[in-house]
Structures are given as C-alpha cells and as structure tokens.
Write a protein that binds this DNA or RNA. Structure first.
Lengths: 313, 313
DNA sequence: CAAATTTGTTGCGTTTATTGCAATCTAAAA
DNA sequence: TTTTAGATTGCAATAAACGCAACAAATTTG
C-alpha cells in the first residue's frame, strides 16, 4: 500500500482545526486542495477517514487509526531530527581506524584522550593489526584510515601524510653504549638484540639495513609484542630497535635511552596515514588524523595529493 | 522540516540493492530520477546521506540515521495496516448508545449478547439516561444513537424508526383485574398506582391520558427506578403502567399480567431510535439498531426518511 | 420554518514536481 | 592506460498538485 504522509498531515490539520477551511488558512492552501488530498488518501487507504456530508471534521475509526500512526511518525521524525542535529553539529559519530603494533603507547593514548575530550559524543574503534590485515580493512571500508610503517603497496590505498620516525637503538640507561650519540649497524648487531618477527615491517627495515652493511641480524629475543621488547630492554637483557615514540615514557623517565643508528635506511623510515582511494572522511576523522600528525612528529609531511608516491613500499 | 518519505524509500532501495541503477530496475524508474530524488532529500534534510562520487552506495552517518527512521516508519505503517484491515473487516470497533431507564431488561440483554457474539472485537458503551441528557449526548456525538420514549423535539435529532409499545396496566397475577382483557383509565386511576416521576416521558403520557378522561393520577409510589415499580407490583402493593417488554420475564413466568388500557393515547406510545441528523452510522451500528428493532416489536415501523415527523413530542 | 451562513465538494485551467531519455562525467576494474 | 559500470545533468514530456469559482449540503439564525 502506498500511503502519502503529506496527505495525512492535511487530514491532521483539518481534524485539529476542526474544518478544512481553517486548515486551509493554516496551511496556506485552497480548501479544495485539502478536500481532494483527503479524498485521495481515502482512496489510497481504501476506507473513509472522515464522516462526509458534515459541516465539521469528524473522524471515523479508521481516521483515528491513521492519525495515531501519524503521531507515531511525528515522534520518530523528531528523534531523527535530533540525531541529524547532533550529527551536523558533530556531537555524535563514529571513527574507526587501524594501527600497527608499534603505535600502542603514551603518544597514542594521549591523542585518543584529546580527541574524545574534543568530541564527547564520538565512539572509537581501534584495530591493532599487521599490514596485510590493515589493507583489507581499508579496502572493505571497515576502518576510516590506518597508521603503519611503509604499508604494502596497493592501487586502492593511498597515503594522506607521512612522518619520519627514525628507528633508534633502544637500550637501558646504564648500558655501555647509552651515552653514545650514535652507533653503527655493526655495533648494533654485536649487541644482544630483541626484535620483532620477520613478518613485521620494522624488522624487515632492520634486516635490510643490516644486509646493506654486510651484517647478519641474530636477535636473542623475537617477539611480535612491542611491550615484550621494551621490557627486555628495561631488564638490561637486550637492545631493541624502535621509533622513539614507542618508548616515549621510558625515555622521559630516564629508564631507557634512544641512540641514533648510523644508517640512511634507519633514518628514512616513515609512518604513513593511509586510506582507501577517494575515501571521503568526515571533519571529525580529519581532526583525528591531524592530531595524530602533530603528535607523531611536528615535521610530518603531507603526502602529494595524488597519494601514489608514498604508498610505494 | 519537510521530509518526503517517498524519497527515503528510494534511498532505502538504492542502499539495499547496492546501487541506484539496480534500485531503478526494482522501482521501475529511470536511474536519473532516483539520483535526483536522493539529491532532493539531501537538500531537504540539510546534510549528505550517501558518499557521492562512489560506484556503490555507501551511507553517511546521517544516511544511516534516516534509514533507521524509515524502518521505524515502516513498522508503524504495518501496524496501521493491520488496524485498518481489522476495521474494514469489522473485526474491531466501538458502538456507544444511550437508552431510557425503561429498556433495562432481558430483551436488551439478549440483544446485546447477540451483538457481542456477532462482533467479537467490538466494544459497547451503554448510557442509561433521561431524555434531556440523551439529546445532549446525541448532539455532541458522544453516542451513536439513543432509544427512548417520545424524545424531546430537537431540530438536530431525528428518529430512525419507531415501534408501538402500548402502555399497559401491570399487576400481580392474582389481582382482581388481572383476568380482564382491558380496563379503562378511570378503573386504572382507582387502583393504587406505582409510577415514575413527572420528569419522565412515560409518566407524562399517563398524566396526559388521565387528564383527557377527567381523571387525576395520584400514585401511592413514585420512583425513578423501573425495578422499584415492578417490585411493588410483584408484591401486590400497587398497579404500575409500563410497556410489556419492561416486564417480559415477569409476564412469561406468570408472576405479573399486562392488561390493555382503553385509551388511544396509551396505544399510540412509541419507542424511537433516535440519532443526530445526518449522522452516518457504520454497518455494525446499523446491525445493532436492526437487532433492537426486531427485538422491540416485529411491527416496528421505519420512520419517514426525512425523520421529522416522529421526533415531534 | 425560511433565510443566511458556513462548509465540503467538483470542474477547469494553471503551476509545480516528477519522470525518462540521452549525454556527460567519474570511480573502479581489467 | 583502456574499459566498464554507475552517478549526474540538461531538456522535453508527463503527472500531480494547486487555486479559482461555482455548487451543494448542513447548521445556525431570525
């Protein structure tokens, strides 16, 4: 059945004001239109709604039922309007994104706190994933954006910006190399290392840099968990290689130190914020990505608008 | 805000089928219309509902909110349809009517039982009122019809039919006059009488007939309750004057007898079923009035269609 | 009771909204 | 890149809604 709610509105006004003519003044229309629309509504519904041949508007039972429906619809509409107001005022919404394991840490938490303070009605979905999974999530629109190291190249995935996050040698403050301003790849490889598995981008970068120097990486501890690596450094059992922001709190309280590694490959490691191509992001999502950009590194660079170059691995 | 639900239907189909083109086939319309209607809807609502510049339909948060409203509306509409089906199948409804005091009795109860058996979904409102109140109820549409003796004349009240209900002398079966075929007004007035107050139509009719015969009515018992009058007759304390149907059960079990009163005024007493002028009655109400007509007297007459003559007092 | 008034309804021409077709543009796929 | 599938836009045709005026019918009023 095809029911036009606009016609019910006419019926409602006619009933509320008592006559079609009064309704016509309220609605600023000719009475004839109202009469016709109500007649049409009756044809659509298949039963009479008002007692015709009367001076005033008297509803039939069916008419009362229709108006009850109309009131239902009206309150539903009010709810919708409230929702839409909230949305356009950005009071509610949802942001979903994915990050690589390395980003769990104080910097991220502070960024999330900032965002949630700034947009109290917003909810967040955060997936901690590996790079392959991140690309899948992006392509299927299951996340708005992803944050990771040199993500896999994919024609449908582009980088919105990148930030240089040089990998550093992370070691205990009491480590013999801790007061050095920089160390070489060879010196690094001579130390007991705690690194991620070879499936991870960070590890792949390290292996690549080491291979360039003719060194072999043979870590004493391999883990896919960054906190495990950090703990091993804190316990003076190993040196690990991570970007500074992953261990920012340990650096600031003096427990660990980060030493520069003499290697162009280690310096030119970039974090990319990636999205699906042509993905339209709401202002709130944009705000979150901007906060992340600032937090990651004040020197973060915006990717070229075509977004192709930085996505190359 | 003016929202056209038909447009939301297009949005819904486009979202459900995945693209405007598929929706256009389902809806048997040109894709351009769908696009335009959705664009118009976005203008009406004031925010984008789908992510434009995409191959497939992807809703924004506002779009999801709109579709949630649409689903609400849909279920409301289903409820309305169910109600309307019930109404048009006459499965539910409401009948409200008023009767004069004299009609309470077995005949009425049986009529109501019949009606309620025939229309299980229907509810009844029965007001037992005096004539003045009955007219007020009719004029304000608080009852569909009324049943009473010679109701007050009113230009807006018409009689649908009338039934002759001669007033009879009601007396105990052992009363000296009980085996008479008829008695005169004078004989009646010589008996101890139990009658209604002078505000009631029945009493007024009796007084009028007595005055015509030069008699004075001086009842030993006056009550506005018919059962009280009946009881006084059963107790052999008085003779009362009522239509037969008011005492049908007492007549059939032989407790009381009804004796004809020799008086044209007493013979031409009519019960009228009255409604407001031009009141349109549903088939169910008509059925109830028809049942009442048959029950009151098989000889009941339909009032002239202009309905003016019988309403005269 | 009859005249006057108010109200709903209907015919007809006008205005507005909707639709379909074809062309154009664009994102996604090959 | 080229191809393909889908969204969008201009324009003419169509359908719906509208206003005006006349009419009919129901109440009110005198």
């Amino acid at each position: 059945m095809q029911i036009n709610d606009r016609r019910i509105h006419f019926l409602y006004e006619a009933w509320r004001s008592g006559s079609m003519r009064q309704a016509s003044e309220i609605l600023e229309m000719a009475p004839s239109s109202i009469s016709r629309q109500i007649a049409q509504l009756e044809r659509e519904i298949g039963s009479t709604l008002i007692e015709h041949g009367r001076r005033e508007i008297v509803l039939t039972e069916a008419g009362h039922a229709v108006l009850e429906y109309y009131r239902n619809r009206h309150s539903s509409l009010e709810m919708l309007n409230a929702q839409l107001r909230d949305l356009s005022a950005a009071r509610t919404g949802h942001v979903k994104f994915a990050i690589g394991e390395g980003f769990l840490g104080e910097a991220l938490y502070r960024t999330l706190d900032e965002f949630m303070d700034g947009y109290p009605g917003f909810t967040l979905s955060l997936s901690v994933t590996d790079t392959t999974e991140m690309v899948r999530l992006l392509l299927e629109d299951e996340v708005h954006f992803g944050l990771g190291f040199h993500p896999l190249s994919h024609p449908q995935v582009v980088s919105r910006f990148r930030a240089a996050v040089p990998l550093k040698a992370i070691m205990h403050a009491a480590h013999p190399l801790a007061d050095r301003s920089s160390i070489s790849i060879a010196e690094l490889c001579a130390e007991p290392l705690a690194l991620m598995g070879q499936a991870f981008r960070i590890r792949q970068m390290i292996d690549l840099a080491a291979a360039d120097s003719g060194q072999l990486v043979s870590p004493v501890l391999v883990s896919n968990s960054i906190p495990v690596l950090i703990r091993s450094a804190c316990a003076r059992r190993a040196v690990t290689v991570l970007p500074e922001f992953s261990v920012r709190s340990e650096l600031s309280n003096g427990q660990l130190v980060a030493v520069r590694i003499v290697s162009s490959a280690m310096q030119s490691v970039y974090v990319h914020l990636i999205t699906r191509r042509n993905r339209i992001l709401s202002p709130q999502v944009m705000a979150l990505t901007e906060q992340m950009r600032k937090r990651l590194a004040p020197t973060a660079l915006y990717a070229p608008t075509d977004g192709k170059e930085p996505a190359a691995s």
